[in-house]
Amino acid sequence: MIWLLAGCGGLAETLFLRHDGADLRVRIEGPSDPPAIVALLHGGPGGNSEEYNTGSWQDTVEAEVAVAYLDQRGQGASQGVYDAEDVTVAQLAADTDAVLALLEARFPGTPLVLMGHSWGGALGIATLLQTDAPARLSGWIEVDGAHDVLLLNRLAVPMFLSEGEAQIDAGRNVGRWSEIVSFAEGVNVERITADDSSRINRYGFEAEALIPEVSVEEGGALDLAGYYLSSSVGWPTERWVGNHTADLLAYEAEQTGFSEQLHHIGTPSLLLWGAYDFVVPAALGADAASRMPDAELVVLPRSGHAPMFNEPAAFSDTILGFVHEVIE
């Protein structure tokens, strides 16, 4: 019933783009004649766009502009047949540019803004640096984007230490924080191993959950049951396919480091971060803002790694403010 009602009276369209063997799904929702389209790159790798098409943030944003939810190659409801060698960051960036060209053709004259969350932030940066996408885009929004995994790991360690010690001093979750701080103290930030990186990621999510200031919108981020009921793919299938694609991309994604190239990005950019994101610390956003010629950093004070679900109203207002600014 939910999907029967969804999109009534507005734009609710599913398109596929056949590109280099993949059939890439794009779900577009918003007003019937949108003044702009925000093309969303999901996190992961191994995630899917439907994880974002929920909660109040998308209702607010879609009331004013359209959102195009792209399922990346080998993830979500995208399909097709290709070789494992075709699952690379460069190929996914080329896919993204091709989808932007599709949106350009399908909605001629409508400004396009690209937005990427977490891994999608890294993919968006790759798209801006490696393809013709900048010519198609009015703006770029990076939300807690993992565009430099080596650097974000280095930045996460002191964040674990400083926040952990503050939480222990305040007597909050002392046992859990002590373990996290102990781990962080043992990490050599000049020589972070793959195991360190994996544990930084895991402890990052755990640390965020221990921060009382970080709220999660009721019914925002899909719980397992909600996701299972809403997924167009089927939960076990989506996990199976997504995990396989994540494995193919894992090494390259871990080596991703675009910081030194960020000064080439002239597209107007909004860097939107959660203050309590231990997975991709806001310090990475600050570093990016200092390198990019036309970028503004906004840090939401009660958010973690998924500010669209932590502070949906502030998140939506910031997104819409930026979109209106760049299309005027």
């Binding site: 398109l15 783009l17 590109h19 053709a105």
Partner: peptide
């Protein structure tokens, strides 16, 4: 596929009827 499918060609985007596999 459950939606209109396009493919990029030299002459632009072209629809793919009954796309699937």
């Amino acid at each position: 596929l459950a939606g209109q499918t396009y493919v990029a060609t030299d002459s632009g985007l072209e629809p793919v009827p009954l796309a699937g596999q």
